[in-house]
């Protein structure tokens, strides 16, 4: 049996860095480096076995194995090299911090995600959808707004955060406003594109059914636009969280994830910062996953969703 090239490459890198650590850091450094690489190689081997042998359902575990491997490597490295908690706390310390500060995390979650991000997300996406229908109705508007919208979607929109904080005050309303502006254009561009996704043949068929504009819109063009709309909703979901958190850097009441992150960095309380990051990451993934799940339910007919079990 020959070893897979990935394992060989990892082992070679491991030996090299261990030797380097032995020279620069001494015995303990070398031991830690060797241990880190041993964990990495074990994790990779486990994944190779999982993907090759079991396949199917077990393949879903492969990313979890990789994640676990990275966490263990992180823990060993931080403790072994004696990295200060001010620079990078080990995963167990972060977990302990999460356990002891649930109330703070929850307060920040409500302030930033539920009040700021979600309300802005809803307003922005609905406004963009309505605008898209209007824009689609009038070709002149479409030809004029779409290039402008595409342009704005590529701009660093986050830069208007300080202005909106100035206009709407420090509380969650200004964060929601930033989110509205951030999600509006990607959503608009996708929705307009989607509303044009029907073929002339299909539209002609609706016309032979004597369908008016509205029934054509509701029964043919909106459903046909759903894959594009969901694409926009997914892009907007990550933007919404980023917008709400970054807007808090420009001023906020004394709660909120962005506020906590920026003040805790100043206090060198990095375990709390990482706790907030974990919450943000889980929230972001859950938000994205939820939209992907709804998409799967609603656009089961689309080629990209078929044949994926």
């Amino acid at each position: 049996m020959t070893l897979p090239p990935i394992i060989l490459a990892e082992a070679a890198l491991g030996v090299l860095l261990t030797a380097l650590a032995a020279l620069t850091l001494g015995g303990q450094g070398a031991l830690v480096t060797a241990l880190v690489f041993a964990v990495w190689i074990a994790g990779t081997a486990c994944n190779i076995w999982l993907v090759g042998r079991v396949g199917g359902a077990a393949a879903g575990i492969a990313p979890l194995v990789l994640g676990g491997t990275i966490l263990v490597m992180w823990e060993i490295a931080v403790r072994g090299y004696g990295v200060s908690g001010v620079i990078l706390p080990p995963p167990t310390a972060i977990a302990a911090k999460i356990a002891t500060s649930v109330s703070i995390l929850w307060e920040d979650f409500v302030q930033t995600v539920i009040k700021g991000a979600l309300s802005g997300y809803a307003i922005g996406c609905i406004a963009a959808l309505v605008t898209a229908v209007i824009v689609d109705r009038f070709d002149f508007l479409r030809r004029g707004l779409l290039p402008v919208g595409n342009f704005v979607a590529a701009l660093p929109v986050i830069g208007i955060a300080p202005i909106l904080v100035m206009w709407f005050g420090f509380d969650w309303q200004s964060k929601a406003a930033v989110v509205v502006v951030m999600v509006f254009f990607p959503m608009l561009v996708n929705a307009v594109e989607g509303l044009r996704a029907t073929e002339p043949m299909q539209r002609d068929l609706m016309r032979t059914y004597a369908a008016g504009y509205w029934s054509g819109l509701v029964k043919l063009r909106l459903p046909a636009a759903l894959p594009f709309i969901f694409n926009g909703l997914k892009i907007a979901s990550t933007l919404a969280l980023i917008g709400a958190i970054v807007a808090e850097f420009f001023g906020s009441p004394i709660r909120g994830m962005g506020f906590r992150i920026s003040t805790s960095v100043g206090l060198l309380a990095l375990d709390l910062v990482w706790a907030e990051i974990v919450v943000a990451a889980i929230t972001g993934s859950a938000f994205y996953g939820a939209i992907a799940l709804i998409e799967k339910r609603m656009t089961f007919w689309h080629p990209s969703q078929r044949g994926r079990g």
Binding site: N47, L50, V51, A59, A62, P63, V65, L66, G67, I158, T238, L241, I242, I245, V246, M257, G258, I261, V273, E276, I277, A280, A281, G284, S285, F287, Y288
Partner: peptide, 18 residues
């Protein structure tokens, strides 16, 4: 199988926030 899901997950972390 193992890296691709993390590439996608990496983007749900609001990096700008950290």
């Amino acid at each position: 199988r193992s890296v691709m899901p993390w590439v996608i997950a990496s983007q749900t972390i609001p990096i700008l926030a950290i």
